[in-house]
Design a protein around this nucleic acid. Sequence first.
DNA 1: CTGAAAGCGCTTACAG
DNA 2: CTGAAAGCGCTTACAG
Lengths: 337, 337
Amino acid sequence: MANINNVAKKARVSIATVSRVINNKKYVATKTREKVMSVIEKLDYKPLYSAINLATKRTGNIGFIVWGEHFSEIEKFYSQIFLGMEYSARDSDYYILLTTVKEKFNPKEDLPRFLKYKDVDGVALAGRVPTSLIEYLENQGIPFILIDYGIPDKVCNSVVMDNYNGAFQAVDQIVKSGKKNIGFIGGSYFHPSVKDRYRGYKDNLKSNGLGDSEYFDKFSFLKNVETSPEIGIQGVKHLLSQNIGLDAIFCCNDTTAMGALSELKKYNIKVPKEVSVVGFDDITLSSFCTPSLSTVRVPKLEIGKESYRLLTEIIANPDSTPQTSIIDVEYIQRRSS
Amino acid sequence: MANINNVAKKARVSIATVSRVINNKKYVATKTREKVMSVIEKLDYKPLYSAINLATKRTGNIGFIVWGEHFSEIEKFYSQIFLGMEYSARDSDYYILLTTVKEKFNPKEDLPRFLKYKDVDGVALAGRVPTSLIEYLENQGIPFILIDYGIPDKVCNSVVMDNYNGAFQAVDQIVKSGKKNIGFIGGSYFHPSVKDRYRGYKDNLKSNGLGDSEYFDKFSFLKNVETSPEIGIQGVKHLLSQNIGLDAIFCCNDTTAMGALSELKKYNIKVPKEVSVVGFDDITLSSFCTPSLSTVRVPKLEIGKESYRLLTEIIANPDSTPQTSIIDVEYIQRRSS
DNA sequence: CTGAAAGCGCTTACAG
DNA sequence: CTGAAAGCGCTTACAG
């Protein structure tokens, strides 16, 4: 493999000049630059990253951390976000190191190697993530961003989707279709995304003159456990048992909506005629189930790309004030509403 | 951050000695070693990978390449294999760099950066992968392994599951349940895994005295296109139209079996009573569909771990003769058969 | 068992 | 605009 010395020698310049050329620095005579370029071409010279990294005191790595549980879910939500980051990274000089972290995370023992050895320039945390991990990164001064997550009382750099407006719009569509008694089913109430979706639901109903606090009491089914089809099933059972004339359900996400759909089927309740159902996320299943699920599409790849942009910006400028990128979502009309 | 000089000075030894200690080399007096260790501890010293890599002329990276199409599929087959590799890599000193490659791959333009810059010590190729990529790696002398794939006329280091025996056993179970007219539905006939499963199917029927070439002609539905539920649907239609007393179907994988199941439902044919169905892979859906699908379980994490072992062995020993690791599979009895 | 020194392949002031 | 030289933080013969 050719190195910088070979190139310099063959081009009859110093290695400093070669370095200037490959880094596109100014102050290189056009003729010199061209000559060096042609030699680089001829020798098929590629600079060695470990040498660059050593000299510039960077690592060239970005960590991507996600719960093992989340990564192994059927839906590839976080894998797609990762892929979005990877797409961006391809054209740059960072590698994305994907790793998972387990439920009971202990910073002393379970630290990914790239953190232990300070072998990343920054880290992206996808979804819910141990608080102790976040604190560790803060203490160590490692630049990081939160994706689709947030912590109360803590302002972090983050990328989120527009949960509030997505929910607001979805519920608006339900109302426009003539429904009046619209339930909400949700789990993971600790998750900021769910909170915002719930807010969007309530605010829309209020703005449409439909909901007040009594209404929300009756029509909300919220559990503080991880969302799942099971929550949807329980939610339907509960709402139905209340005898409140339920004619629509807005679920905090598609997974929950899947459970709701299957439970309604059991009761022989027609969707969307009797009860319409709308979810959030647009997971793959949503377009394939029967009836296909109306939902709010979350552009995962775009979230990944924006995450890359934000994180590299922060790495380059560690002392900037924390910012939050909000990714637009889009209501998708299908058969269930 | 402490470096090797700080440690050496504080421990009153040379950096060579510190290096020996951190690399667990012999020829260090116990007392010296202990002293150095305690200083390392006190200073929280971690060696810098870019320096190590530069000095040892390694990269510390392993590439993991998969088709974009495969990575984005619902089923997380290859993601799980990746995760298995990652689990192994955690305790070692390699990072796994995951990237995707597109359908029409051009080695001149679409080379992942870690290949272009020779920034990996080895590469794992997961699933079907462009032949030109494999040739590129061979020409460049970059150590690589094939996972769940193979190329005719080319002996490569590879990790595969025991497709033949898995199919053989599955069909054996079908026969034992009393079925006699057992169809085979498959796509991706170019894929060695499918070929081996088909062979297992035929050999079992032969050994049970059920199948001959005429039988296989009648009972086989094989397409040379990517497997999908659609293939399963077509297969059922075809086999049924033949009026051959079909009473069981062995599908080349679960995805195909899903299509078969749904099509049988349309014809109101009872599974498994009238026609039993068995798949291969044990994807997540298989235990959740109705009826749940009997299948052959492929241990993805284990494949990943074995892949890591094999690849690192090859990296350490590039001139060893190519070897193939075969991972055991397991028949899983569920409701569909 | 230990240390001095060269070397890995880059970047970056500094001097000209 | 260009080059000589120091430096990044390690490893590795070599000599003792």
